[in-house]
Design a protein around this nucleic acid. Sequence first.
DNA 1: GAGCCGACTTCCGCAGCGTGGAAGTCCGTG
DNA 2: CACGGACTTCCACGCTGCGGAAGTCGGCTC
Lengths: 262, 262
Amino acid sequence: MTVLTSAQRVLAILGVFDTENLALSLSEISRRTGFTLSTTHRLVNELHCWGALSRHGDGKYTIGLRILELGSLAPQGGQLREIALPFLHDLQHATRANIHLGVPEGHDVIYVESLRARDTVPVPSRLGGRWPMHATGTGLVLLAHSSQEFQEEVLASDLFAYTVNTLTDPGALRRFLAEVRTSGVAIVESQLTYDVMAVAVPIRGPRDRVVAAVGITLPSGSASPHSLVPALATTARSISRALGAPSAAHFTAREVRRAPNR
Amino acid sequence: MTVLTSAQRVLAILGVFDTENLALSLSEISRRTGFTLSTTHRLVNELHCWGALSRHGDGKYTIGLRILELGSLAPQGGQLREIALPFLHDLQHATRANIHLGVPEGHDVIYVESLRARDTVPVPSRLGGRWPMHATGTGLVLLAHSSQEFQEEVLASDLFAYTVNTLTDPGALRRFLAEVRTSGVAIVESQLTYDVMAVAVPIRGPRDRVVAAVGITLPSGSASPHSLVPALATTARSISRALGAPSAAHFTAREVRRAPNR
DNA sequence: GAGCCGACTTCCGCAGCGTGGAAGTCCGTG
DNA sequence: CACGGACTTCCACGCTGCGGAAGTCGGCTC
């Protein structure tokens, strides 16, 4: 039983909140962290005073708005989101599908934006959601454009098979990633959940580094996912340009046409 | 010189990040918190290991994605946002204006969603942004529907005059808030910044408590802001119903018409 | 290249903060 | 009314974290 530093205790308390535990009472927090009630009580109070936790009528605590506020300061989150949102809206309007904007974090992809279409399959993705790279379209795009050593690190890790289609074999994954790099797009079907297919492309930032991926999810077996690639690629390029990616700096045909009017 | 608890130190470090300080080096954090370099170093490291801070190539730290992820678990944030977003999209499409979704936090309103129209006045609002209640349309709506004692508490506090139009006189504010309660809408002009007017209405949740406000901002002097009220009210009611507000539970005229088709 | 400076990292002894046990309060319940 | 569970408060001990100091690294000036 290793002893924790008090900073780690503070973080551990925040860490017990997740999508299945949005509201917890003091003693639930105490049980889940393993801290004594008095310790938990004091720390929770300090977090509450600061606004990191908020307390509700029934005595339960939830993550506070101060955290939301802080989170929006994450450059890969709030900043990127702010820039990308209008383009993502356009894309959603054109395709009427679920749109995701994902960035890498550890071996996972985090969705910093998630536009859910109203009349489509529910998809296990929410803003702030975290999924393993090897099982999602956006994740595979990000992985394909990561450093060689990072890729090997992920390939060597324990790759969970969410469905029978999930790519878990290192060899197959390597081939798939190479294909993503050459074609510029990842198309996967039923890798995370059945009945869902995903199409994703990279977004580049300054120095042309891939900083994010934008993806679309559709019901499995949808008519030619390839037909969505042009719209996706256009969106990705617009966002890349707004982020300052050199390769996206020149005008597209459409914008050249529009330019004289400005 | 009061001494801080270590939980407070941890929070103080997170607290030095704001919209003007998105990326800070170790010694900048040290200076701004007033902690010695060694203390800062250790705490920042623990935060970094946990994912609360991320470290960039230039050695600077920014808020990490783990915080963004956590923040999306705030019920007034992620949850509300998730439900409201489609309705807000529709509203933006109909009005082509900036849309905000605000919730109360202390004496301020926090924007948990901010849809910026592309061709309109830039407005000082971003997701996660915080503004005083008395100076914003959404804030005044929330204040108007707060408890009597909370209102008096705010009125008694130091109300900053952002412009000459900002309501800072307690008497004038009381009258305005009463009007907001009876009319159900707040219309303000140039109270936070010049050249911007705002229209906002309340959103209700379970037990009909006002839990949020949705607002629109337009250039000052726009043709009749009143014409936007029906669209805003419809949006607010749709969101309220989705949140389970009893008063919004019955169908509106439009939906009764549409109902047989489903 | 020498010298300097600032930023960062590491180490360690002292002491002050945090820990957890225990006692106390306030519910709702049988 | 007695019980149990959840929460709150208090305090003395001792362990964790503090900060001074020394060490490392890289960049800038002369």
